[in-house]
Design a protein around this nucleic acid. Structure first.
Lengths: 137, 137
DNA sequence: CTAAATGCAAACGGTTTGCAATGCT
DNA sequence: AGCATTGCAAACCGTTTGCATTTAG
């Protein structure tokens, strides 16, 4: 398993290290959209001397290499998402939960971006999720 | 002109006020993706006693009513965008410029969101823009 | 041995907050 | 007057920074 992560990192031109593999592992097993603090708290058990700075360093590195992206949440803290296959996000304005969804197929790509190189795509919807719609107020 | 903004605010259930109209006016005339500070600096000339807190208050109000949304920039500061008609954003990873584009048409909407109410959609692309691609390094 | 990665603690700065002042009806 | 809006200044807290320490090859 750890070997897969190593290869994955190398594919993005990143030298493997303990923290880098652990963070990758975190995303792989949680499939959520965590904040830096959530990752920090989760890894603290295994890496007692871990510092937040190292989390931020690693997240920034991953961002710059396109391994992660940030979500346009209205939270104070930044939420990160792993850039695996292209998928969309729906944020419920009532309960705050973020849902993933598979993206609708496009009929064609935008003309304004002719000649642009696209590294990542993000779709972010906001609204009210079905569970919240059916809750009594 | 100011009357249009009043009506627009009321449509969103917001009582018009000087600052609210000015900020709306700013977005209407600039069509950019400004930070709170940029708006503050721009309005300071006309409203000398303006405070940043009022800018943040108003932006938060607009966000909560769906008049504005935030963009998933990697900047330290939050970038805001007016939620007019649905359009996408492309952020150049080299020069940082944010381009608008008209969204590609969808073949159908995602099944995972059946029964959800969608208030806003955001498409955010990242990559390298054509001008940067043609620049000499 | 050397360079990169990690940790620590302090500083930073965008944003938030509490409350006073002002404006509006 | 009474309530909402705005302004001010201080606090907050997520993030960044500089540098010391550790780790890996």
């Amino acid at each position: 398993m750890a070997n897969q992560f190593k290869e994955y990192l190398q594919k993005y031109g990143i030298k493997p290290s303990t923290i880098r593999i652990k963070i990758l592992d975190y995303f792989y097993h949680h499939r959520t959209h965590p904040t830096a603090e959530e990752i920090y708290q989760a890894l603290l058990a295994e890496l007692p001397t871990l510092s937040r700075a190292s989390i931020y360093n690693t997240l920034d590195l991953f961002l710059s290499r396109g391994l992660l992206k940030t979500l346009p949440t209205e939270d104070r803290e930044t939420h990160y998402d792993m850039n695996l296959d292209f998928h969309g996000h729906f944020e419920c304005e009532k309960c705050g939960k973020i849902y993933d969804f598979s993206p609708p197929a496009f009929e064609h790509s935008p003309q304004e971006l002719q000649g642009f190189v696209i590294h990542s795509k993000e779709m972010y919807y906001r609204g009210i999720c079905a569970p919240c719609l059916h809750k009594k107020p």
